[in-house]
Structures are given as structure tokens and as C-alpha cells.
């Protein structure tokens, strides 16, 4: 029996634009389990990115509950949500979004320093380990503008996991990368997952989805498909891809 780490119950999210209400999430229900690499897929405008913001507490649901450790994220104060972001959650963006005037090493350590439960020395030690693990140790003092997209995204992943979050959110982490860099980043995420890191990733890339242990398919603001997969093994890549493709086709993707 898997342990639920995050739970969405009848979640609604609407936006008002020019006096018109647009309903993005329409009573979405989902449970995210510990240790999974959960992927959210769906067509453009289906609400997958909105799901990610709402589940990560970056946006507040219009209705329903998003429960983390039994506590509704919508009811948390700005301060508590901020604390949650640098202690329990990590976030990887499609456009990397590294702080432009900080070196790669500093980009990784800053969220570590924000975490009061960890000393500066511990943060720096872990940052060194992550630099090594992400393969960017040699360019640790480079500014983001001096690095390739893949290097920046690896740094962004290291930054997201510096505080050993309970759940890592990744929004199209390979969306802005070429094929080689995509593979590198997916390998890193898979490695992290193998090490026990729970990951919730939004993507529309089947190759990325194939790394998942579970895929949720979203349409019109609701989860309409839930596929459980075995732990990723590159030997099974082709068969997994076929399985995922067939499943997606059945959902008219």
C-alpha cells in the first residue's frame, strides 16, 4: 500500500478574464504517492500546468481541498507556504529560471540557506555533492548566461533538491532542451526517483512520460486516466513507450 503524500479533492480553479469566467479545473481528484515519479499529461489547455500550481501551493484553488500532511494548502498563510516551498517542496521550471547574477553554485546554495533546519556547512556540502552528481562541478562559478540550457536545467534540478524535498514538482523540465540535454535531465530525474525522491512532473513528451511510475491524464480539468507502470528500466524503454502510446491513444490523445 503506497502512502499518499499529496491529495486533491474536488478541486476547482476558475479565472475571470474580461468579465468572463474560465473554468480550468472542474472537480479534480488525485492522490500523489510517496516515492512515485508521477507524470501529468494532457492536451494543451487541459489544465495540467494549473494542476501543478495548485498542487504545489503556488496558486490557490477556487474550491475543493489540496491536502498536504492533512493540511489544506489553500488555507495556509503566505509565510507557511513560503516555508513549505523551501523545506518540503522543490520546483523545476521549463525555462530554468536561475537567478541571473548568481553563479550556479550560489543558485543551488541560496534555497539551502533559507532552510533554517540546516547549517550553512551542511548546505554547502550537499551543494558540492549535487554539483558532482549533476555533472556541473567544473562550471560551478559560471553565471547562468555562460552555460548551456542543459547545464542550467541540471543546476535548476540541483537547486530544487538541495533541501531534500518530500516532493519535487517539475513543469515541462525538458521543454526547452535539445534531445541530448533532454536525455541527461531525464536520467537525472530518474536517478533521483530511484533514490526515493517523489516527483510530480508535467510533460507532453512521451519519452519523458515513459520514465514515470504512474501517469495521470487530464482533460477538461479532471483526471480521466490513471496508468500505473513498473519502475523505469531502460531495457524496457521500447515496450514501455508502446504501452504508454496505446494507453494515450485509448484516451484520444
Amino acid at each position: 500500500m503506497k502512502k499518499t503524500i499529496l491529495s486533491a479533492k474536488e478541486v476547482y480553479k476558475s479565472f475571470a478574464h474580461n468579465g468572463r469566467q474560465t473554468h480550468i479545473l472542474t472537480g479534480m481528484n488525485a492522490d500523489i504517492y510517496e516515492g512515485d515519479l508521477t507524470v501529468i499529461m494532457g492536451a494543451s489547455g487541459s489544465g495540467k500546468s494549473t494542476t501543478l500550481y495548485v498542487l504545489s501551493g503556488m496558486d490557490r484553488a477556487t474550491g475543493g481541498l489540496v491536502l498536504y500532511n492533512g493540511e489544506d494548502l489553500a488555507k495556509m498563510s503566505e509565510k507557511k507556504l513560503s516555508a513549505l516551498r523551501h523545506s518540503d517542496f522543490g520546483f523545476v521550471f521549463q525555462q530554468m529560471h536561475l537567478v541571473s547574477n548568481l553563479s550556479l553554485y550560489e543558485n543551488i546554495t541560496v534555497p539551502g540557506y533559507l532552510n533554517k533546519s540546516r547549517s550553512a556547512a551542511e548546505t554547502e556540502k550537499r551543494a558540492e555533492e549535487l554539483l558532482e552528481k549533476m555533472g556541473i562541478k567544473d562550471i560551478r562559478d559560471h553565471l547562468p548566461s555562460q552555460c548551456s540550457g542543459g547545464e542550467q536545467q541540471r543546476c535548476a534540478i540541483a537547486r530544487a533538491v538541495i533541501n531534500e524535498p518530500k516532493l519535487l514538482f517539475a513543469d515541462e523540465p525538458t521543454g526547452a532542451l535539445n534531445r541530448k540535454n533532454t536525455t541527461e535531465v531525464l536520467d537525472l530525474l530518474t536517478d533521483l526517483n530511484r533514490g526515493g525522491q517523489s516527483i510530480l512532473m508535467v510533460t507532453h513528451d512521451i519519452r519523458a512520460a515513459c520514465r514515470a511510475s504512474r501517469i495521470l491524464y487530464i482533460e477538461d480539468g479532471r483526471i480521466i486516466g490513471d496508468l500505473d507502470l513498473a519502475m523505469y528500466d531502460e531495457k524496457d524503454e521500447k515496450s514501455r513507450e508502446a504501452q504508454v502510446n496505446a494507453w494515450l491513444t485509448s484516451l484520444e490523445w
Binding site: 513560503s82 521550471f93 537567478v99 534555497p111
Partner: peptide
Amino acid sequence: RTDIGIFKALGTTS
């Protein structure tokens, strides 16, 4: 503006 957003995402309060 983007850096501010990043810091917010990293858990820094407004």
C-alpha cells in the same frame, strides 16, 4: 521581476 518570482518560488516571502 523574474528573479523576484524565482525567489518567491524558492520560498522567500514577499
